[in-house]
Design a protein around this nucleic acid. Structure first.
Lengths: 215, 215
DNA sequence: TTTTTTGTGAGACGCGCGTATCGTATTGAC
DNA sequence: GTCAATACGATACGCGCGTCTCACAAAAAA
């Protein structure tokens, strides 16, 4: 078999009809999701004017579709970097940058959370075919980086606990609880998140200070 | 029409074959859910040895089923009361009481969250038939009650923000982030939650103190 | 006991998702 | 231009969910 025309399906393949159709579907899916819905593969196929069969060749399931759109939406957040050297400020800046983006892609991130819950349930039931295992761990590295200035100044245990606590007030969950459950607006949500984040960072710093005094 | 035999379908109706079958299904569903899965109405019907048609008469959808089981699981938490007068201690006690219960019914609460996300998506898409609107607001009153001792001592705005912040670190979301995402155990999860809660309560108290000094 | 109401079971139906199998059109190599 | 590889479309199938209808059984009312 001649494999000279074989196109690598990996991330580097940006040319050819395959990449073109994939882009078309991805953009259609993104557009549909931003307008609120969580389209099925069939719906995206119809909106993108491709056959259902073709659509399923690129995205075997709704999960794969959402996964791809999430990666798109996450892009600008993951490469973001703060210039400040103050941990509290860095965390605040991260929240200010990431949350509006998450709000813009609210439906997408909620769909991702929904899918991760679905996969968890299937894993519990034993009905699972070694799926790609939804990521959902980006906030760990982002927050870790944001509080990096405290790296040496805090005991490892306190440092880790701080990051874990911060990860509780960062992500779609924030939107779900504060906007959907409490009925807050975007600005109020950010304000609450900022306050909670500051409280945590300061508490960790104070704790570290106490340890120093004791010794 | 003679309505003398009409049985009120409300909460007070605990007798008759209807109530019996309902109990049977509810207990079967609870059992299945605690073993991890999120059973469909058909699956519960089979496990409870009732006809599919009958099952659908009591619980028209999986959502109704999960809703009922959540109410069962929530019961002991909602009636719980702390004797302490110290807000920080009360919050800690609430977390210590509620979280293990939530862990026990982990699959149920995750299913409830999943369903609320589903309903949100349908609401966005406009495809909605005026459903019962999943509650998911119990934590508000629980936390409100826990921090009640601070009611008068804190400015209303600070008080409200404290409760909203606490609601971020209380519920299934805690399990999802700390256990599933971080891989923590139950004890570690509780420890992180307690630390974060304390940090928030103390920060609110300190803030109130500062306001007093200023004036 | 007879009658009527009420709960239940069995089965058929439509619907949407995911899969598989065709035939056809487009593409790039020679 | 010719030919093979590849991408695409149309269609059919199985499956599970949710709904509906009809017949039967059980219980209460007459």
């Amino acid at each position: 078999m001649n494999v000279s025309r074989q196109q690598d399906a990996g991330a580097g393949a940006e040319r050819g009809p395959r990449a073109r159709t994939r882009r078309l579907m991805l953009e259609t899916a993104t557009r549909l999701m931003q307008s609120g819905s969580t389209p099925s593969v069939s719906e995206v196929a119809e909106a993108a004017q491709v056959s259902r069969a073709t659509a399923y060749r690129y995205f075997p399931s709704q999960a794969a579709l959402v996964h791809a759109v999430v990666d798109e939406a996450l892009g600008p957040i993951l490469t973001w970097q703060s210039r400040s050297k103050n941990a509290e400020r860095r965390v605040a800046a991260l929240i200010d940058t990431a949350m509006p983006r998450i709000e813009t892609f609210e439906a997408t991130f909620k769909a991702a959370l929904k899918l991760s819950l679905e996969q968890w349930a299937q894993r519990q039931a034993g009905t699972l075919g070694a799926e790609p295992e939804f990521a959902r761990g980006h906030r760990k590295v982002l927050l870790q980086d944001a509080v990096a200035p405290l790296e040496g100044r805090l005991p490892p245990k306190v440092h880790r606990r701080l990051v874990q606590s911060l990860s509780l007030i960062f992500g779609v969950e924030l939107v779900i609880i504060l906007k959907d459950m409490w009925g807050l607006g975007s600005a109020e949500m950010l304000s609450v998140a900022q306050w909670a984040a500051s409280a945590m960072v300061r508490a960790a710093e104070a704790e570290a200070l106490n340890e120093e005094v004791k010794s």
